[in-house]
Simulated assay, not measured.
Amino acid sequence: MENDLWAFEHSLSSTGIPVLHKHDSHEFFLCREGTGFQYTEKGATPMQPGDFFFFPEGQLHISGVESGQTSYVLVANLKEAYLSSSSEADSEAGLALRLLRQQAMRWRNKVLLSEKGARDIGLIFSELVEEGRQRRPGYRCAQKIAMLQMLLTVLREGQFAGERQGLPRPRGAERIEEACRLLESNYMYPVSVSQLIRQLNISRSHFHALFSQVTGKSMLQYLNAIRVREALRILKEGDPSTAKIAAQCGFRSVSHFYYVLRMETGRSMRDLRSNAGLRSKISG
Rank of each mutant, 00 (worst) to 15 (best):
residue 3 N to Q: 14
residue 5 L to I: 14
residue 10 H to V: 06
residue 11 S to R: 13
residue 13 S to R: 12
residue 15 T to Q: 15
residue 16 G to K: 02
residue 17 I to S: 13
residue 18 P to A: 00
residue 20 L to G: 03
residue 20 L to T: 04
residue 22 K to F: 09
residue 29 F to G: 08
residue 32 R to Q: 14
residue 33 E to T: 05
residue 38 Q to A: 13
residue 39 Y to T: 11
residue 39 Y to I: 09
residue 40 T to W: 00
residue 42 K to G: 04
residue 43 G to E: 13
residue 52 F to M: 06
residue 54 F to Q: 06
residue 60 L to T: 07
residue 61 H to R: 04
residue 69 Q to F: 03
residue 71 S to H: 00
residue 71 S to Y: 03
residue 86 S to V: 13
residue 87 S to L: 07
residue 90 D to Q: 08
residue 93 A to R: 03
residue 95 L to G: 07
residue 96 A to T: 08
residue 99 L to E: 14
residue 100 L to D: 07
residue 101 R to C: 07
residue 101 R to W: 13
residue 105 M to I: 10
residue 106 R to M: 11
residue 108 R to W: 04
residue 108 R to Q: 15
residue 110 K to T: 09
residue 110 K to W: 10
residue 112 L to W: 08
residue 122 G to T: 10
residue 122 G to E: 14
residue 123 L to P: 05
residue 129 V to S: 02
residue 137 P to A: 13
residue 139 Y to F: 15
residue 142 A to M: 10
residue 142 A to H: 11
residue 146 A to H: 02
residue 151 L to K: 02
residue 154 V to M: 11
residue 157 E to F: 09
residue 157 E to W: 09
residue 157 E to V: 06
residue 158 G to T: 08
residue 159 Q to S: 14
residue 162 G to E: 12
residue 175 R to Y: 11
residue 175 R to V: 02
residue 176 I to L: 02
residue 180 C to D: 02
residue 184 E to G: 10
residue 186 N to D: 10
residue 192 S to Q: 13
residue 193 V to T: 15
residue 200 L to S: 05
residue 200 L to M: 05
residue 201 N to C: 07
residue 205 S to P: 00
residue 208 H to R: 01
residue 209 A to P: 00
residue 209 A to W: 10
residue 210 L to W: 02
residue 212 S to R: 07
residue 213 Q to K: 12
residue 216 G to V: 03
residue 217 K to A: 03
residue 221 Q to M: 04
residue 222 Y to M: 01
residue 229 R to P: 01
residue 231 A to Y: 07
residue 237 E to I: 02
residue 246 A to I: 01
residue 246 A to R: 01
residue 248 Q to L: 12
residue 250 G to A: 05
residue 254 V to F: 04
residue 263 M to H: 12
residue 264 E to G: 04
residue 264 E to N: 06
residue 264 E to L: 02
residue 266 G to M: 04
residue 267 R to E: 14
residue 268 S to W: 09
residue 271 D to F: 06
residue 276 A to R: 10
residue 277 G to M: 01
residue 278 L to Q: 15
residue 279 R to T: 15
residue 280 S to W: 14
residue 284 G to T: 04
